[in-house]
């Protein structure tokens, strides 16, 4: 299920503005890769190119290659909708559909892929996904209530359940804990550690302790100045980045000297 990602010579634009320049990196399957860097350096933008969500913004476009197990996502015959069905995404702010019940939220993606799902299968899938997101015990008695009635941390785990219900190959997380309290954050981090057995996970975070705690590899992004494109400075094993980075900029950032 989990697959590797190879990014080759990727440039990302908003209209004429080049937001991210010349990214070249690989993401290993069944691992957690963290993107860190100062605000505006393009790490979220880069994350959104991995499931072709970048291009839903008017004027946004991408040059270069993103390969999932050798298949270029940006090849002309690739349907972005199909890409997004295989690469799940969790957003910064929890966004379960408030017009749907908890169970329907979990099934939202499955219903898009495969309209006919028997009631029993649906129930099993809801339970399995919610257990996978460590949320089952908290919501099993109110599956038909709206998802917006949950706490922020529960909502975010519901979003993770929704994303893993379709059994994606890759799970992208865009600062999934930045709107959550420390206890909910811990719950999500534990969940990430469990999920990496089955999924390739890429997580953007502003919290360097979080990157150090959950990730196997860390990529540091930086930008030279306002109006300049963001660049990938270095990517390495997390232990190396946080102990002996090759670049001075990385060391300055992780030691809190700037950013």
């Amino acid at each position: 299920m989990a697959q590797r990602i190879d990014v080759k010579d990727l440039n990302i634009y908003y209209g004429d503005f080049r937001a991210v320049a010349d990214v070249e990196m690989s993401v290993e399957p069944r691992s957690v890769t963290a993107f860190i860097g100062p605000s505006g350096c393009g790490k979220s933008t880069f994350l959104r190119t991995l499931n072709r969500m970048h291009e839903v913004i008017p004027g946004a476009r991408v040059e270069g290659r993103v390969e999932i197990d050798g298949v270029d996502l940006y090849a002309p015959d690739v349907d972005p909708v199909a890409v997004r069905r295989q690469i799940g995404m969790v957003f910064q702010r929890p966004n379960p559909f408030p017009t749907m019940s908890i169970a329907d939220n979990v099934l939202a993606g499955v219903r898009l892929n495969n309209r006919r799902i028997s009631k029993g299968d649906a129930q099993d899938l809801v339970e399995q996904s919610l257990r996978g997101a460590n949320l089952w015990n908290e919501v099993k008695d109110r599956l038909d209530r709206p998802g917006s009635g949950l706490s922020g941390g529960q909502q975010q785990r519901l979003c993770i359940a929704r994303a893993i219900a379709v059994k994606p190959q890759v799970l992208l997380m865009d600062e999934p804990c930045s709107a959550l309290d420390p206890i909910s954050t811990l719950a999500i981090e534990d969940l990430i550690s469990e999920l990496k057995a089955d999924y390739t996970i890429v997580i953007v975070t502003h919290n360097m302790q979080q990157a150090a705690r959950v990730s196997d590899r860390t990529a540091f992004f930086n930008l030279a100045g306002q109006g300049q494109p963001g660049k990938l400075v270095e990517v390495d094993d997390t232990s190396v980045i946080f102990s002996a980075p090759r670049e001075q900029a990385t060391e300055d950032y992780i030691s809190g000297r700037f950013g």
Binding site: V83, F91, F97
Partner: peptide, 20 residues
């Protein structure tokens, strides 16, 4: 937020409109 949630699940534009 919700439109993107639907799109990220692999909804087409019409499906996104129906869901959100």
């Amino acid at each position: 937020l919700y439109e993107e949630a639907a799109l990220a699940l692999g909804a087409t534009r019409w499906e996104m409109i129906r869901m959100t």
